[in-house]
Design a protein around this nucleic acid. Structure first.
Length: 573
DNA sequence: CGAGAGACTTGGAAGAATGTTA
DNA sequence: TAACATTCTTCCAAGTCTCTCG
């Protein structure tokens, strides 16, 4: 129904006619969101117990109970806030009779329901091949039908074409709303956006859309308001789409423009450290942090609505400690705060003396919970940046510093003499330098210690094999020494070849172990996907003859198709 | 101009698919 | 070929930044 795909690739895809200012598309046609299936009641023999006695729940109450039951062994359910929020919202959904009975969460027994879902999961996994195949085909059919749209004549993949299922809200960190009920999205909640003359998507049988609009100044296909934070959610295009790709390209072009003026900007904020206006001084110190440490801007947040996290402009006095002297360094600032997603930022940095002096000044006569930059807002900072360079905002510094770091590190670390594995280690190390700069962390994988041990054992085994092979070579050589016959000579060659192969394998394993260890707590994905100009990587691959598949998987290659298309080996960020 | 709405990017974790090993 | 580990993909929360409105 949506017509034939145009495929990706093809020349000229990244340069098409200019659109009017603010206009994002001329044609947009799609099927609307795919609605997740409605709730299916539990079988009769799967029971909920209250105070030790089975209790048959109404459909709505049962559905909410299953949300909790599914998470029963998750750490979330041990948290008091989670329990309270859940219980509060659950009770709101109960009939008055149920409300009369169910008054204490501790008396609720979800274990049988939990067990049921665990078994369902296992049953699904144990399904025969053909059954699995059938399910796969059904999913593919939905993907085919709802997963694509037509935008300006191109068939484009949609990122999230399904509505989010109802469930319990899982915030990150100490989120005050964790455990609250996330409501089911109905067609009546959904606003559709498409082009006026397109085939307007049909709402599901018996339903209607909240609204249909024809706004080509935005890129979303559908939207709804979620009930936890009362904010909008959107259905948008996949990163592989032309629309997103061009935006991505543009982002890196802005960052490249910063490269030309960054020296001047740095000189200016150094001058501003001495400004008579406190506001300017705070701005200059904050900008120094944003530039040097790749901190996020740090918008103000509504207190009590979200986890207590901060960025640069929202740092509080309690988040830094000043050490005139520390570990042989001067003017050390010790940062310790929770950033985005409640990821801890901990860093000790030696700063320039005027910065240190200014910080002392900003902290004077303040409580720990007072804002460090009390005269500064992100709006004020960004206004200033906009004035320094068209399109410049705080986040551009993160993009710029990330990309320039990758480029420099690749230059410094890549040894042309290395084999592919060695070069890839260098690439990962360059990537890692960026991830560390941006504080992209992950929790240590559960199996880390074990798999590290397995790898170490492999290395030990391989070492022994290498030693044995060395002796074999020696033996063969001795024999050749004695006999001087052709057969013995051939044998020497054979043993040497074997040794060489084993040594290579050992080297590869050692590289693997190094890479793994260094990567223990570092998440490379975010920087790779969002901060590193892909043209740097493409150029590096071309220059050193590394196949692009070794650094980008299929999804990443699709997202970065524009860069793979356009970057030559001499690309400079 | 300041708060809130809106649109879009960025983020780690969980779940699914795939690869490897005993 | 089952069990386990690794990689890929999906999920959806949480940021940034601009725009709008009183």
């Amino acid at each position: 129904p949506l017509g034939l795909g145009m495929g990706s690739g093809g020349c000229g895809r990244w340069e098409e006619e200019k659109k009017e200012d603010g206009v994002k598309w001329m044609q947009l046609e799609h099927r609307g969101p795919y609605f997740v299936p409605l709730y299916e009641p539990l079988p009769e023999d799967v029971q909920f117990y209250y105070d030790g006695k089975p209790l048959k729940l109404s459909l709505a109450t049962e559905e909410i109970a299953t949300f909790y039951a599914k998470m029963l062994h998750h750490e979330y359910t041990t948290k008091e806030i989670f329990q309270n929020n859940f219980f509060h919202d659950w009770r709101k959904g109960m009939t008055s009779e149920e409300q009369e009975i169910i008054k204490d969460l501790d008396k609720c027994d979800f274990r049988e329901i939990h067990k049921y879902f665990v078994e369902q999961n296992e049953a699904r996994k144990a399904l025969p091949k053909e059954e699995k195949q059938k399910l796969k085909e059904e999913a593919d059919k939905i993907q085919e039908e709802y997963g694509y749209c037509i935008l300006d004549g191109h068939r484009e993949k949609i990122a999230n074409f399904k509505t989010e299922p109802p469930g319990l809200f899982r915030g990150r960190g100490e989120h005050p709303k964790m455990g609250m009920l996330k409501k089911r999205i109905m067609p009546e909640d959904v606003t559709i956006n498409c082009s006026r003359d397109s085939k307007i998507p049909e709402p599901p049988e018996g339903h209607k859309w909240k609204e249909v609009r024809f706004d080509n100044t935005v890129t979303w296909l559908a939207s709804w308001t979620e009930n936890i934070n009362n904010s909008l959610k959107y259905i948008m295009l996949n990163p592989s789409s032309k629309l997103k790709g061009e935006k991505d390209w543009q982002k890196y072009e802005v960052a490249r423009r910063l490269k030309d003026v960054v020296h001047e900007i740095r000189a200016q904020y150094r001058r501003d450290w001495k400004s008579k206006e406190i506001k300017k001084r705070q701005r200059a110190v904050a900008l120094y942090f944003i530039d040097k440490l790749a901190l996020r801007a740090g918008n103000e947040k509504e207190e009590g609505e979200t986890a207590d996290t901060v960025g640069c402009c929202s740092l509080r006095v309690e988040h830094i400690q000043l050490h005139p002297q520390l570990d042989g360094q001067e003017h050390v600032v010790e940062f310790d705060f929770l950033g985005k997603d409640s990821i801890r930022y901990y860093n000790k940095v030696s700063v320039e003396k005027p910065v240190f002096r200014n910080l002392q000044l900003f902290m004077k006569n303040k409580d720990p919970t007072d804002d460090l930059f009390d005269h500064l807002t992100t709006t004020f900072l960004n206004k200033h940046l906009q004035h320094l360079m068209d399109g410049l905002t705080a986040k551009v510094f993160r993009t710029y510093n990330a990309s320039i770091t990758l480029q420099e590190q690749l230059k410094a670390l890549t040894n042309p003499e290395d084999n592919v594995a060695g070069k890839l280690l260098s690439y990962n190390r360059a990537n890692r330098a960026v991830a560390i700069l941006c504080n992209h962390q992950r929790s240590i994988p559960k199996t880390f210690a074990k798999s590290m041990q397995v790898l170490q054992e492999k290395i030990d085994t391989k070492k022994k094999q290498v030693e044995e092979a060395q002796e074999e070579v020696k033996k063969a050589e001795d024999e050749y020494e004695d006999t001087k016959d052709a057969k013995a000579e051939a044998n020497v060659e054979k043993k040497k070849k074997l040794l060489k192969r084993l040594e290579e394998q050992l080297a590869k394993l050692n590289i693997q172990a190094t890479d793994k260890e260094e990567n223990k707590q570092i998440a490379l994905g975010t920087s790779k996907l969002n901060y590193l100009d892909p043209r740097i990587s493409v150029a590096w691959c071309k220059k050193f003859g590394i196949p692009i598949e070794r650094i980008y998987n299929k999804t990443q290659r699709e997202k970065f198709a524009w860069a793979i298309d356009m970057a030559g080996e001499d690309f400079e960020f």
